[in-house]
Write a protein that binds this DNA or RNA. Structure first.
Length: 265
DNA sequence: ATGCCTCGCATCGCGAGA
């Protein structure tokens, strides 16, 4: 089963690229971030025509997350992260699909730092930490993926020295991310490619993609049952080179089917 | 030290992203 994350930076603007990519990559389950569209503006018919069921949590102008499946029913378990009933930002969606629990997230950016946005980022990460603690030890495979807006290490950024004051590379954010990993989650990309230079985001300006001046902030985390099924984990560079590209590109993992005699679908 | 480029929403710039 191929499970992917893609920050599309505007579902309206990105729909042709998304549909093209779905056709080429044929992911079974996809989480999307930064829909930048209100709930009613999600292109449900086009997604369905491409062969995918979908659930989504929209928000006008900013944020917004979705979950797509072509391998059967989406059983939604949660939308919105627990721990703050006043938090109106659409950043988290969770569902059971094909025997796997999928958590799709769009973690706050947190710039400028210091400031209220950075405080919100750290508070959101604390809530995520608390919630993921309730998921990590499930017997079923759990995959937590999305735009984490955290550069984990020096290896995950083109010029570490240029990011020292940025919320994405802040010691507090990196420590909070590491604390989540320490619950027992595996960063799938780093597990299979421990030394490689791998990025998932390149700024639009200064030809940064052509120079590979990027950062790795889109992550796929696996609990132990999911890790035992892990076959591959890759960044799909192709969509970043297309016209009208998002500034992010998809990241995906391939998990073995647990029951080979009875393929999913 | 700052802006670069692009988005949605709305005008003829702004707030936000990372």
């Amino acid at each position: 089963m191929k499970i992917a994350t893609f920050n599309v930076n505007g579902i309206g603007r990105r729909l042709p690229n998304l549909l093209k990519w779905l056709g080429l990559a044929e992911p079974d389950i996809v989480v999307l971030q930064e829909l930048k569209a209100p709930q009613a503006a999600f292109p449900h018919a086009e997604i369905e025509a491409a062969g995918y069921q979908a659930i989504w949590h929209g928000q006008s102008r900013w944020n917004g997350v979705a979950l797509l499946s072509r391998v059967g029913e989406i059983h939604e378990t949660r939308r919105g992260l627990p721990g703050d009933p006043d938090d109106a930002q659409s950043r988290y969606i969770e569902a059971a699909v094909g025997g796997v629990l999928i958590a799709g997230l769009y973690l706050p950016n947190g710039n400028p730092r210091p400031g209220p946005k950075f405080d919100y980022k750290l508070a959101w990460m604390a809530r995520l930490d608390a919630h993921l603690r309730t998921l990590v030890d499930l017997k079923a495979p759990v995959v937590v993926l999305g735009d984490f807006n955290v550069i984990p290490t020096d290896r995950d950024v083109y010029k570490p020295e240029r990011w020292t004051k940025d919320a994405l590379f802040a010691p507090e954010a990196r420590a909070a991310y590491q604390q989540i990993l320490d619950q027992g989650w595996t960063d799938a990309i780093r597990h299979l490619h421990p030394e490689a230079t791998i990025y998932s985001f390149w700024p639009y300006w200064r030809r940064s993609f052509e120079r590979n001046a990027g950062i790795r902030i889109d992550h796929v985390l696996l609990n132990k049952p999911a890790k035992t099924l892990l076959q591959s984990a890759e960044v799909d560079l192709q969509p970043r080179g297309w016209e009208k590209s998002s500034d992010h590109t998809p990241v995906w993992v391939e998990l073995a089917d647990r029951n080979k005699s009875k393929p999913l679908k």
